[in-house]
């Protein structure tokens, strides 16, 4: 474990967004005011990046969160050589998975939506965006807090299956979607957040100041703590 470092860490959720260098920044007022108004397009995207917003706007909520979490890392993937990008793995873990999109597709099937009815689509989107060809894994866990994904990423590094690993924990559920069918609340948590870590060896950082390995524990706690947002205080509950 000591051979590896966290190059970058990011988070976005109802209370704000940021990375290990910037700290948490508050969302603009429209999003702060009402958690049910999750509109992670246009305005909010423009805060983070100017690259290919049209593709971003086609994505479902899970992919948008993963995409933004990865962008928030501030790692310069584009500057990496193709050989290095072939050795960068992507691992995602979630509880809710693609349920938000599943429900929307079941209500109104559309070919453009079908591709997003898989929890692993976010990995595909990230690989396309950053031209990553390394190993990939998509886990759906009852106790999802990113620890399984993190463990797998570390194993990739340890086994030399990858030289860097992008590790994501995402929960994505629009309140309006969750309330559109009579699904129990424990199956469709009304929440959204995304967290990303970029792990690698200490000698290959894409940023100038990687976090020390000891910070892993704190990051794990942060990811675990993200579970509290599954049922945020004051959030609406199902009417059924």
């Amino acid at each position: 474990m000591n051979d590896f470092v966290i190059h970058a860490a990011s988070y976005l959720g109802p209370e704000g967004f940021g990375n290990d260098q910037t700290g948490l920044r508050a969302w603009p007022p429209p999003l702060q005011e009402n958690l049910s108004r999750i509109q992670l397009g246009g305005l909010h995207w423009s805060l983070l990046s100017e690259s290919d917003p049209s593709r971003f706007l086609r994505m479902d909520l899970m992919c948008r969160l993963g995409f933004m979490a990865a962008e928030l890392l501030g790692a310069n993937f584009d500057a990496m050589t193709p050989a290095r990008r072939e050795r960068l793995g992507v691992c995602v873990e979630s509880f809710t998975g693609s349920l938000d999109t599943d429900i929307r597709f079941a209500l109104a099937p559309r070919p453009t939506l079908f591709a997003y009815t898989l929890p692993s689509t976010v990995v595909g989107e990230l690989c396309i965006r950053f031209r990553l060809k390394g190993p990939m894994l998509s886990l759906v866990s009852p106790d999802a807090h990113g620890a399984n994904a993190l463990g797998e990423a570390v194993e990739w590094l340890r086994d030399d299956d990858a030289e860097m690993a992008l590790c994501l924990g995402i929960e994505a559920m629009n309140l309006s979607t969750a309330e559109s069918i009579p699904l129990p609340k424990n199956l469709s948590p009304r929440s959204w957040h995304g967290a990303a870590l970029l792990l690698g060896r200490s000698d290959n950082s894409p940023r100038e100041k990687p976090l020390p390995a000891g910070a892993l524990v704190d990051i794990c706690r942060t990811l675990s703590g993200a579970n509290q947002f599954l049922n945020p205080p004051g959030s609406k509950t199902s009417k059924r």
Binding site: A115, G124, C127, I128, L132, K133, P135, M136, L137, D161
Partner: peptide, 11 residues
């Protein structure tokens, strides 16, 4: 065993 990604197209 191994996995990889095309980094090309979603479907």
């Amino acid at each position: 065993w191994s996995t990889s990604n095309d980094a090309n197209h979603l479907t």
